[in-house]
Design a protein around this nucleic acid. Structure first.
Lengths: 223, 223
DNA sequence: AAAACGGTTTAATTTCATTTTAATCGGTCC
DNA sequence: GGACCGATTAAAATGAAATTAAACCGTTTT
Protein backbone atom coordinates (compact mmCIF):
# COMPACT_ATOMS: atom_id res chain seq x y z
CA UNK A 1 0.00 0.00 0.00
CA UNK A 2 1.26 3.42 -0.92
CA UNK A 3 -0.61 6.16 0.94
CA UNK A 4 0.80 9.39 2.31
CA UNK A 5 -2.01 10.19 4.71
CA UNK A 6 -0.60 8.29 7.64
CA UNK A 7 -3.89 8.08 9.49
CA UNK A 8 -5.66 6.37 6.60
CA UNK A 9 -2.66 4.18 5.91
CA UNK A 10 -2.56 3.04 9.51
CA UNK A 11 -6.30 2.31 9.67
CA UNK A 12 -6.16 0.24 6.49
CA UNK A 13 -3.01 -1.57 7.49
CA UNK A 14 -4.61 -2.53 10.77
CA UNK A 15 -7.87 -3.65 9.18
CA UNK A 16 -6.16 -5.69 6.50
CA UNK A 17 -3.76 -7.29 8.96
CA UNK A 18 -6.74 -8.35 11.06
CA UNK A 19 -8.04 -10.10 7.95
CA UNK A 20 -4.73 -12.00 7.80
CA UNK A 21 -3.32 -10.15 4.83
CA UNK A 22 0.37 -9.29 4.95
CA UNK A 23 0.81 -5.59 4.29
CA UNK A 24 3.79 -3.35 3.59
CA UNK A 25 3.16 0.39 3.66
CA UNK A 26 5.06 3.19 1.93
CA UNK A 27 4.32 6.88 2.41
CA UNK A 28 5.63 8.04 -0.95
CA UNK A 29 5.95 6.75 -4.50
CA UNK A 30 9.72 6.38 -4.50
CA UNK A 31 9.70 4.09 -1.47
CA UNK A 32 6.71 2.29 -2.94
CA UNK A 33 8.68 1.62 -6.10
CA UNK A 34 11.64 0.34 -4.12
CA UNK A 35 9.45 -2.00 -2.08
CA UNK A 36 7.83 -3.27 -5.22
CA UNK A 37 11.18 -3.88 -6.93
CA UNK A 38 12.52 -5.78 -3.95
CA UNK A 39 9.52 -7.98 -3.17
CA UNK A 40 6.89 -10.17 -4.71
CA UNK A 41 3.38 -8.93 -4.07
CA UNK A 42 -0.07 -10.13 -5.12
CA UNK A 43 -1.81 -6.77 -4.96
CA UNK A 44 -1.02 -3.06 -4.74
CA UNK A 45 -3.23 -0.36 -3.24
CA UNK A 46 -2.13 3.02 -4.54
CA UNK A 47 -3.14 6.54 -3.68
CA UNK A 48 -2.70 8.84 -6.66
CA UNK A 49 -1.57 12.10 -5.08
CA UNK A 50 1.55 10.95 -3.31
CA UNK A 51 5.00 12.55 -3.06
CA UNK A 52 7.92 11.88 -5.40
CA UNK A 53 6.16 9.59 -7.90
CA UNK A 54 2.41 9.65 -8.42
CA UNK A 55 0.11 6.66 -8.39
CA UNK A 56 -0.36 6.57 -12.16
CA UNK A 57 3.38 6.39 -12.78
CA UNK A 58 3.81 3.76 -10.12
CA UNK A 59 0.98 1.69 -11.61
CA UNK A 60 2.61 1.91 -15.01
CA UNK A 61 5.93 0.86 -13.55
CA UNK A 62 4.31 -2.14 -11.89
CA UNK A 63 2.49 -3.10 -15.09
CA UNK A 64 5.59 -2.83 -17.23
CA UNK A 65 7.25 -5.28 -14.90
CA UNK A 66 4.43 -7.71 -14.26
CA UNK A 67 0.98 -8.09 -15.74
CA UNK A 68 -0.25 -10.38 -13.00
CA UNK A 69 -0.09 -8.10 -9.98
CA UNK A 70 -3.47 -6.59 -9.08
CA UNK A 71 -3.69 -2.84 -8.68
CA UNK A 72 -6.33 -0.85 -6.84
CA UNK A 73 -6.36 2.93 -7.06
CA UNK A 74 -7.60 4.65 -3.94
CA UNK A 75 -8.12 8.37 -4.27
CA UNK A 76 -10.27 11.40 -3.64
CA UNK A 77 -10.39 12.24 -7.34
CA UNK A 78 -13.81 11.18 -8.54
CA UNK A 79 -13.92 12.57 -12.08
CA UNK A 80 -14.45 10.08 -14.88
CA UNK A 81 -11.26 11.25 -16.63
CA UNK A 82 -9.24 10.42 -13.53
CA UNK A 83 -10.78 6.98 -13.38
CA UNK A 84 -10.05 6.41 -17.03
CA UNK A 85 -6.46 7.48 -16.56
CA UNK A 86 -6.22 5.11 -13.63
CA UNK A 87 -7.50 2.16 -15.60
CA UNK A 88 -5.30 3.08 -18.52
CA UNK A 89 -2.30 3.04 -16.23
CA UNK A 90 -3.22 -0.57 -15.60
CA UNK A 91 -5.49 -0.48 -12.54
CA UNK A 92 -7.91 -3.32 -11.87
CA UNK A 93 -10.18 -1.25 -9.67
CA UNK A 94 -10.60 2.38 -8.68
CA UNK A 95 -12.19 3.37 -5.39
CA UNK A 96 -13.15 6.94 -4.52
CA UNK A 97 -12.55 8.35 -1.04
CA UNK A 98 -14.29 8.46 1.30
CA UNK A 99 -15.17 4.82 1.19
CA UNK A 100 -16.24 2.10 3.55
CA UNK A 101 -13.51 -0.28 4.65
CA UNK A 102 -15.87 -3.22 4.11
CA UNK A 103 -16.20 -2.25 0.47
CA UNK A 104 -12.43 -2.18 0.01
CA UNK A 105 -12.32 -5.61 1.57
CA UNK A 106 -14.88 -7.24 -0.72
CA UNK A 107 -13.30 -5.62 -3.74
CA UNK A 108 -9.90 -6.98 -2.74
CA UNK A 109 -11.43 -10.45 -2.36
CA UNK A 110 -13.19 -10.19 -5.73
CA UNK A 111 -9.87 -9.41 -7.39
CA UNK A 112 -7.78 -11.97 -5.54
CA UNK A 113 -10.10 -14.78 -6.50
CA UNK A 114 -9.14 -14.05 -10.12
CA UNK A 115 -5.42 -14.23 -9.43
CA UNK A 116 -3.80 -17.27 -10.99
CA UNK A 117 -2.09 -18.88 -8.10
CA UNK A 118 1.16 -20.58 -8.91
CA UNK A 119 1.30 -24.31 -8.31
CA UNK A 120 2.83 -25.32 -4.99
CA UNK A 121 0.69 -22.89 -3.04
CA UNK A 122 2.54 -20.51 -0.78
CA UNK A 123 5.99 -21.12 -2.20
CA UNK A 124 7.17 -18.62 -4.76
CA UNK A 125 8.08 -20.69 -7.76
CA UNK A 126 8.15 -19.68 -11.40
CA UNK A 127 8.38 -22.25 -14.17
CA UNK A 128 8.96 -22.30 -17.90
CA UNK A 129 9.23 -25.79 -19.34
CA UNK A 130 11.89 -27.61 -17.35
CA UNK A 131 13.31 -24.39 -15.97
CA UNK A 132 12.41 -23.74 -12.35
CA UNK A 133 13.07 -20.55 -10.41
CA UNK A 134 12.55 -20.42 -6.67
CA UNK A 135 12.09 -16.82 -5.59
CA UNK A 136 12.55 -17.62 -1.93
CA UNK A 137 15.73 -19.63 -2.02
CA UNK A 138 16.87 -17.82 -5.19
CA UNK A 139 17.72 -21.17 -6.73
CA UNK A 140 17.36 -21.93 -10.40
CA UNK A 141 17.41 -25.36 -11.96
CA UNK A 142 16.88 -27.11 -15.28
CA UNK A 143 16.15 -30.82 -15.66
CA UNK A 144 16.58 -30.93 -11.91
CA UNK A 145 20.18 -29.75 -12.13
CA UNK A 146 20.98 -26.71 -10.04
CA UNK A 147 22.30 -23.62 -11.83
CA UNK A 148 24.00 -20.97 -9.71
CA UNK A 149 23.24 -17.42 -10.85
CA UNK A 150 24.54 -14.07 -9.69
CA UNK A 151 22.12 -11.40 -8.49
CA UNK A 152 21.87 -9.56 -11.80
CA UNK A 153 21.60 -12.77 -13.78
CA UNK A 154 18.77 -13.85 -11.49
CA UNK A 155 16.90 -10.56 -11.86
CA UNK A 156 17.25 -10.65 -15.61
CA UNK A 157 16.02 -14.22 -15.84
CA UNK A 158 13.11 -13.41 -13.52
CA UNK A 159 12.13 -10.56 -15.81
CA UNK A 160 12.28 -12.86 -18.81
CA UNK A 161 10.14 -15.48 -17.10
CA UNK A 162 7.52 -12.99 -15.99
CA UNK A 163 7.30 -11.85 -19.59
CA UNK A 164 7.54 -15.23 -21.22
CA UNK A 165 6.42 -15.39 -24.86
CA UNK A 166 6.64 -11.64 -25.04
CA UNK A 167 9.40 -9.85 -26.91
CA UNK A 168 11.03 -7.41 -24.50
CA UNK A 169 13.13 -4.58 -25.87
CA UNK A 170 16.49 -3.57 -24.47
CA UNK A 171 14.83 -0.43 -23.18
CA UNK A 172 12.22 -2.47 -21.29
CA UNK A 173 15.01 -4.50 -19.75
CA UNK A 174 17.15 -1.46 -19.00
CA UNK A 175 14.29 0.22 -17.17
CA UNK A 176 13.10 -2.79 -15.24
CA UNK A 177 16.23 -4.75 -14.41
CA UNK A 178 18.81 -2.00 -14.36
CA UNK A 179 17.56 1.43 -13.43
CA UNK A 180 18.76 3.24 -16.49
CA UNK A 181 16.28 5.23 -18.50
CA UNK A 182 18.14 5.94 -21.68
CA UNK A 183 21.70 5.05 -22.46
CA UNK A 184 22.48 4.19 -26.04
CA UNK A 185 26.08 3.24 -25.57
CA UNK A 186 26.03 0.50 -22.96
CA UNK A 187 25.89 -3.14 -23.93
CA UNK A 188 25.53 -4.66 -20.45
CA UNK A 189 22.29 -6.25 -21.48
CA UNK A 190 23.84 -8.09 -24.41
CA UNK A 191 26.65 -9.27 -22.18
CA UNK A 192 24.28 -10.51 -19.53
CA UNK A 193 22.06 -12.28 -22.00
CA UNK A 194 25.23 -14.01 -23.11
CA UNK A 195 26.06 -14.96 -19.50
CA UNK A 196 22.56 -16.35 -19.04
CA UNK A 197 22.64 -18.34 -22.23
CA UNK A 198 25.91 -19.95 -21.21
CA UNK A 199 24.43 -21.01 -17.91
CA UNK A 200 20.88 -22.04 -18.78
CA UNK A 201 21.23 -23.24 -22.36
CA UNK A 202 24.78 -24.36 -23.10
CA UNK A 203 24.63 -27.79 -21.45
CA UNK A 204 20.98 -28.42 -22.25
CA UNK A 205 19.10 -29.68 -25.25
CA UNK A 206 16.71 -26.82 -26.01
CA UNK A 207 17.00 -23.08 -26.43
CA UNK A 208 15.07 -20.70 -24.19
CA UNK A 209 16.16 -17.17 -25.09
CA UNK A 210 15.59 -16.09 -28.68
CA UNK A 211 16.72 -12.81 -30.17
CA UNK A 212 14.46 -10.86 -32.48
CA UNK A 213 16.85 -8.65 -34.37
CA UNK A 214 15.82 -5.02 -34.14
CA UNK A 215 13.17 -5.82 -31.50
CA UNK A 216 14.65 -7.47 -28.44
CA UNK A 217 14.64 -10.87 -26.78
CA UNK A 218 11.95 -13.47 -25.95
CA UNK A 219 12.03 -16.31 -23.49
CA UNK A 220 9.88 -19.16 -24.69
CA UNK A 221 9.66 -22.89 -24.51
CA UNK A 222 9.86 -24.05 -28.10
CA UNK A 223 10.44 -23.10 -31.73
CA UNK B 1 -26.92 -7.75 -20.06
CA UNK B 2 -29.98 -7.96 -17.88
CA UNK B 3 -31.62 -4.57 -17.40
CA UNK B 4 -35.32 -3.79 -17.27
CA UNK B 5 -35.07 -0.06 -17.93
CA UNK B 6 -35.23 -0.32 -21.69
CA UNK B 7 -33.80 3.11 -22.33
CA UNK B 8 -30.65 2.38 -20.35
CA UNK B 9 -30.41 -1.10 -21.84
CA UNK B 10 -30.62 0.29 -25.35
CA UNK B 11 -28.03 3.01 -24.73
CA UNK B 12 -25.56 0.53 -23.30
CA UNK B 13 -26.21 -2.06 -25.99
CA UNK B 14 -25.52 0.52 -28.64
CA UNK B 15 -22.38 1.85 -26.98
CA UNK B 16 -20.96 -1.62 -26.41
CA UNK B 17 -21.74 -2.78 -29.91
CA UNK B 18 -19.86 0.24 -31.24
CA UNK B 19 -16.87 -1.00 -29.27
CA UNK B 20 -17.17 -4.30 -31.11
CA UNK B 21 -18.56 -6.28 -28.21
CA UNK B 22 -21.32 -8.75 -28.96
CA UNK B 23 -24.24 -8.10 -26.64
CA UNK B 24 -27.44 -9.98 -25.80
CA UNK B 25 -30.02 -8.12 -23.73
CA UNK B 26 -32.73 -9.52 -21.44
CA UNK B 27 -35.34 -7.36 -19.69
CA UNK B 28 -35.98 -9.69 -16.78
CA UNK B 29 -34.13 -12.24 -14.67
CA UNK B 30 -35.91 -15.31 -16.00
CA UNK B 31 -35.03 -14.57 -19.60
CA UNK B 32 -31.53 -13.63 -18.46
CA UNK B 33 -31.18 -17.05 -16.84
CA UNK B 34 -32.37 -18.82 -19.97
CA UNK B 35 -29.91 -16.91 -22.12
CA UNK B 36 -27.05 -17.90 -19.83
CA UNK B 37 -28.03 -21.51 -19.79
CA UNK B 38 -28.15 -21.62 -23.56
CA UNK B 39 -25.02 -19.63 -24.43
CA UNK B 40 -21.37 -19.13 -23.57
CA UNK B 41 -20.62 -15.62 -22.40
CA UNK B 42 -17.48 -13.91 -21.17
CA UNK B 43 -19.17 -11.28 -19.05
CA UNK B 44 -22.53 -10.42 -17.52
CA UNK B 45 -23.87 -6.98 -16.68
CA UNK B 46 -26.72 -7.31 -14.19
CA UNK B 47 -29.15 -4.84 -12.74
CA UNK B 48 -30.30 -5.93 -9.30
CA UNK B 49 -33.92 -4.83 -9.21
CA UNK B 50 -35.30 -6.73 -12.14
CA UNK B 51 -38.54 -8.68 -12.54
CA UNK B 52 -38.96 -12.42 -11.90
CA UNK B 53 -35.47 -13.14 -10.52
CA UNK B 54 -33.27 -10.48 -8.95
CA UNK B 55 -29.67 -9.76 -9.83
CA UNK B 56 -28.22 -11.39 -6.73
CA UNK B 57 -29.97 -14.67 -7.45
CA UNK B 58 -28.97 -14.55 -11.07
CA UNK B 59 -25.34 -13.87 -10.12
CA UNK B 60 -25.40 -16.84 -7.77
CA UNK B 61 -26.88 -18.99 -10.49
CA UNK B 62 -24.16 -17.95 -12.93
CA UNK B 63 -21.46 -18.53 -10.33
CA UNK B 64 -22.72 -21.97 -9.44
CA UNK B 65 -22.59 -22.86 -13.08
CA UNK B 66 -19.31 -21.21 -14.06
CA UNK B 67 -16.61 -19.49 -12.00
CA UNK B 68 -14.97 -17.95 -15.01
CA UNK B 69 -17.73 -15.68 -16.27
CA UNK B 70 -17.20 -12.11 -15.16
CA UNK B 71 -20.10 -10.36 -13.44
CA UNK B 72 -20.69 -6.63 -13.12
CA UNK B 73 -23.56 -5.37 -10.96
CA UNK B 74 -25.13 -2.18 -12.23
CA UNK B 75 -27.64 -0.64 -9.83
CA UNK B 76 -28.98 2.45 -8.12
CA UNK B 77 -28.46 0.91 -4.70
CA UNK B 78 -25.39 2.58 -3.27
CA UNK B 79 -25.37 1.31 0.32
CA UNK B 80 -22.32 -0.61 1.42
CA UNK B 81 -24.48 -3.57 2.51
CA UNK B 82 -25.87 -3.85 -1.01
CA UNK B 83 -22.39 -3.79 -2.47
CA UNK B 84 -21.26 -6.45 -0.05
CA UNK B 85 -24.22 -8.63 -0.94
CA UNK B 86 -23.40 -8.15 -4.61
CA UNK B 87 -19.82 -9.22 -4.17
CA UNK B 88 -20.87 -12.12 -1.99
CA UNK B 89 -23.19 -13.26 -4.74
CA UNK B 90 -20.07 -13.51 -6.87
CA UNK B 91 -19.79 -10.14 -8.58
CA UNK B 92 -16.43 -8.93 -9.89
CA UNK B 93 -17.42 -5.30 -9.88
CA UNK B 94 -20.30 -3.15 -8.67
CA UNK B 95 -21.16 0.15 -10.33
CA UNK B 96 -23.65 2.62 -8.88
CA UNK B 97 -26.10 4.47 -11.13
CA UNK B 98 -25.95 7.06 -12.46
CA UNK B 99 -22.56 6.37 -13.98
CA UNK B 100 -20.55 7.46 -16.99
CA UNK B 101 -20.54 5.05 -19.92
CA UNK B 102 -16.78 5.54 -20.29
CA UNK B 103 -16.30 4.26 -16.77
CA UNK B 104 -18.30 1.14 -17.50
CA UNK B 105 -16.15 0.63 -20.55
CA UNK B 106 -12.80 0.85 -18.79
CA UNK B 107 -14.07 -1.37 -15.99
CA UNK B 108 -15.17 -3.97 -18.52
CA UNK B 109 -11.75 -3.85 -20.13
CA UNK B 110 -9.99 -4.13 -16.79
CA UNK B 111 -11.95 -7.29 -16.04
CA UNK B 112 -11.63 -8.85 -19.48
CA UNK B 113 -7.87 -8.48 -19.50
CA UNK B 114 -7.83 -10.93 -16.58
CA UNK B 115 -9.93 -13.44 -18.46
CA UNK B 116 -8.27 -16.40 -20.19
CA UNK B 117 -5.03 -14.69 -19.37
CA UNK B 118 -5.42 -13.37 -22.89
CA UNK B 119 -6.91 -10.99 -25.38
CA UNK B 120 -10.18 -9.14 -25.47
CA UNK B 121 -11.19 -5.95 -27.20
CA UNK B 122 -8.43 -3.38 -27.33
CA UNK B 123 -5.76 -6.02 -26.88
CA UNK B 124 -2.50 -6.88 -28.52
CA UNK B 125 -3.64 -9.05 -31.38
CA UNK B 126 -4.50 -7.73 -34.82
CA UNK B 127 -6.35 -9.78 -37.40
CA UNK B 128 -7.26 -9.47 -41.07
CA UNK B 129 -8.98 -12.55 -42.42
CA UNK B 130 -6.76 -15.50 -41.63
CA UNK B 131 -3.76 -13.27 -40.97
CA UNK B 132 -2.96 -12.90 -37.28
CA UNK B 133 -0.40 -10.53 -35.78
CA UNK B 134 0.58 -10.82 -32.13
CA UNK B 135 2.09 -7.55 -30.95
CA UNK B 136 3.52 -9.08 -27.78
CA UNK B 137 5.31 -12.10 -29.15
CA UNK B 138 5.82 -10.31 -32.49
CA UNK B 139 4.59 -13.42 -34.24
CA UNK B 140 2.64 -13.37 -37.47
CA UNK B 141 0.74 -16.31 -38.89
CA UNK B 142 -1.62 -17.20 -41.73
CA UNK B 143 -3.83 -20.26 -41.73
CA UNK B 144 -2.13 -21.09 -38.46
CA UNK B 145 1.28 -21.29 -40.13
CA UNK B 146 3.94 -19.13 -38.52
CA UNK B 147 5.64 -16.52 -40.70
CA UNK B 148 8.89 -15.02 -39.42
CA UNK B 149 9.28 -11.34 -40.24
CA UNK B 150 12.14 -8.91 -39.73
CA UNK B 151 11.62 -5.77 -37.68
CA UNK B 152 10.94 -3.48 -40.65
CA UNK B 153 8.68 -6.01 -42.33
CA UNK B 154 6.73 -6.33 -39.10
CA UNK B 155 6.35 -2.56 -38.73
CA UNK B 156 5.23 -2.19 -42.30
CA UNK B 157 2.67 -4.99 -42.00
CA UNK B 158 1.41 -3.52 -38.75
CA UNK B 159 0.91 -0.20 -40.49
CA UNK B 160 -1.01 -1.90 -43.29
CA UNK B 161 -3.22 -3.79 -40.86
CA UNK B 162 -3.99 -0.70 -38.81
CA UNK B 163 -5.05 0.98 -42.06
CA UNK B 164 -6.81 -1.98 -43.62
CA UNK B 165 -9.14 -1.21 -46.50
CA UNK B 166 -7.52 2.19 -46.81
CA UNK B 167 -5.15 3.13 -49.60
CA UNK B 168 -1.94 4.39 -48.06
CA UNK B 169 0.45 6.40 -50.19
CA UNK B 170 4.18 5.84 -50.29
CA UNK B 171 4.53 9.15 -48.48
CA UNK B 172 2.22 7.97 -45.68
CA UNK B 173 4.32 4.85 -45.35
CA UNK B 174 7.61 6.71 -45.55
CA UNK B 175 6.56 9.04 -42.77
CA UNK B 176 5.05 6.43 -40.50
CA UNK B 177 7.21 3.37 -40.93
CA UNK B 178 10.50 4.92 -41.96
CA UNK B 179 11.30 8.36 -40.66
CA UNK B 180 11.85 10.00 -43.97
CA UNK B 181 9.77 13.03 -44.94
CA UNK B 182 10.30 13.34 -48.62
CA UNK B 183 12.76 11.47 -50.74
CA UNK B 184 11.73 10.81 -54.31
CA UNK B 185 14.68 8.71 -55.26
CA UNK B 186 14.49 5.81 -52.83
CA UNK B 187 12.50 2.69 -53.59
CA UNK B 188 12.81 0.95 -50.22
CA UNK B 189 9.08 0.84 -49.83
CA UNK B 190 8.53 -0.99 -53.10
CA UNK B 191 11.24 -3.44 -52.14
CA UNK B 192 9.72 -4.07 -48.75
CA UNK B 193 6.21 -4.48 -50.10
CA UNK B 194 7.75 -7.11 -52.36
CA UNK B 195 9.42 -8.81 -49.37
CA UNK B 196 6.08 -8.86 -47.56
CA UNK B 197 4.17 -10.24 -50.51
CA UNK B 198 6.66 -13.06 -50.84
CA UNK B 199 6.23 -13.98 -47.20
CA UNK B 200 2.53 -13.51 -46.58
CA UNK B 201 1.01 -14.21 -50.01
CA UNK B 202 3.29 -16.44 -52.05
CA UNK B 203 2.39 -19.78 -50.44
CA UNK B 204 -1.23 -18.88 -49.72
CA UNK B 205 -4.42 -18.89 -51.71
CA UNK B 206 -5.55 -15.27 -51.50
CA UNK B 207 -3.97 -11.89 -52.06
CA UNK B 208 -3.80 -9.31 -49.27
CA UNK B 209 -1.80 -6.34 -50.57
CA UNK B 210 -3.16 -4.60 -53.65
CA UNK B 211 -1.46 -1.89 -55.69
CA UNK B 212 -3.41 1.23 -56.62
CA UNK B 213 -1.33 2.66 -59.42
CA UNK B 214 -0.49 6.30 -58.81
CA UNK B 215 -2.00 6.16 -55.31
CA UNK B 216 -0.31 3.59 -53.12
CA UNK B 217 -1.14 0.23 -51.56
CA UNK B 218 -4.14 -1.27 -49.73
CA UNK B 219 -4.30 -4.27 -47.46
CA UNK B 220 -7.70 -5.92 -47.67
CA UNK B 221 -9.31 -9.29 -47.33
CA UNK B 222 -10.91 -10.04 -50.69
CA UNK B 223 -11.43 -8.99 -54.31
C1' DA C 1 46.44 -0.80 4.37
C1' DA C 2 47.18 -3.95 0.61
C1' DA C 3 45.79 -7.85 -1.88
C1' DA C 4 42.46 -10.96 -3.53
C1' DC C 5 38.05 -12.01 -5.03
C1' DG C 6 33.49 -12.14 -7.19
C1' DG C 7 30.57 -9.58 -9.60
C1' DT C 8 29.54 -6.02 -12.82
C1' DT C 9 30.48 -2.94 -16.56
C1' DT C 10 33.05 -1.13 -20.52
C1' DA C 11 35.30 -1.53 -24.71
C1' DA C 12 36.88 -3.66 -28.85
C1' DT C 13 36.40 -7.26 -32.25
C1' DT C 14 34.14 -10.51 -35.07
C1' DT C 15 30.18 -12.28 -37.21
C1' DC C 16 26.13 -12.06 -39.49
C1' DA C 17 21.36 -10.52 -40.58
C1' DT C 18 18.96 -6.74 -42.18
C1' DT C 19 18.37 -2.77 -44.77
C1' DT C 20 19.26 0.01 -48.66
C1' DT C 21 20.85 1.02 -53.24
C1' DA C 22 20.89 0.42 -57.88
C1' DA C 23 20.22 -1.84 -62.05
C1' DT C 24 17.05 -4.51 -64.94
C1' DC C 25 12.63 -6.21 -66.40
C1' DG C 26 7.72 -5.88 -67.72
C1' DG C 27 3.60 -3.90 -68.55
C1' DT C 28 0.58 0.18 -69.70
C1' DC C 29 -0.72 4.55 -71.55
C1' DC C 30 -0.06 8.27 -74.75
C1' DG D 1 8.27 3.60 -79.85
C1' DG D 2 9.19 6.06 -75.69
C1' DA D 3 8.04 7.48 -71.18
C1' DC D 4 6.27 6.20 -66.93
C1' DC D 5 5.34 3.28 -63.04
C1' DG D 6 5.88 -0.53 -60.42
C1' DA D 7 8.07 -5.37 -59.68
C1' DT D 8 11.98 -7.95 -59.13
C1' DT D 9 16.66 -9.19 -58.29
C1' DA D 10 21.33 -9.11 -56.79
C1' DA D 11 24.95 -6.78 -54.72
C1' DA D 12 26.65 -3.35 -51.43
C1' DA D 13 26.32 -0.84 -47.19
C1' DT D 14 24.87 -0.67 -42.73
C1' DG D 15 24.00 -1.78 -38.25
C1' DA D 16 22.78 -5.15 -34.68
C1' DA D 17 24.14 -8.85 -31.83
C1' DA D 18 27.62 -12.26 -30.04
C1' DT D 19 31.78 -12.80 -28.00
C1' DT D 20 35.98 -11.93 -25.63
C1' DA D 21 39.13 -9.62 -22.79
C1' DA D 22 40.12 -6.28 -19.76
C1' DA D 23 38.86 -2.54 -16.46
C1' DC D 24 36.33 -1.28 -12.57
C1' DC D 25 34.27 -1.54 -7.88
C1' DG D 26 32.85 -2.95 -3.49
C1' DT D 27 33.70 -6.49 -0.04
C1' DT D 28 36.30 -9.60 2.36
C1' DT D 29 40.71 -11.49 3.58
C1' DT D 30 45.42 -11.21 4.81
Amino acid sequence: MVEDEKKIAETLRKGLTEQHYEVDVAYDGAIGKKLFDANTYDLAILDINIPLMNGYELARHIRSYNEEILVIMLTAMSATEDKIEGFEAGADDYIVKPFDFQELLVRIRALLKRLHHQPAAGSNILKVGDLVMNLDSKEVSREGRNIPLTAKEFQLLEYFIRNKNKVVSRIDIAMNVWDIDFDTKTNVIDVYVNFLRKKIEKDFSSKLIYTQVGMGYVLKENS
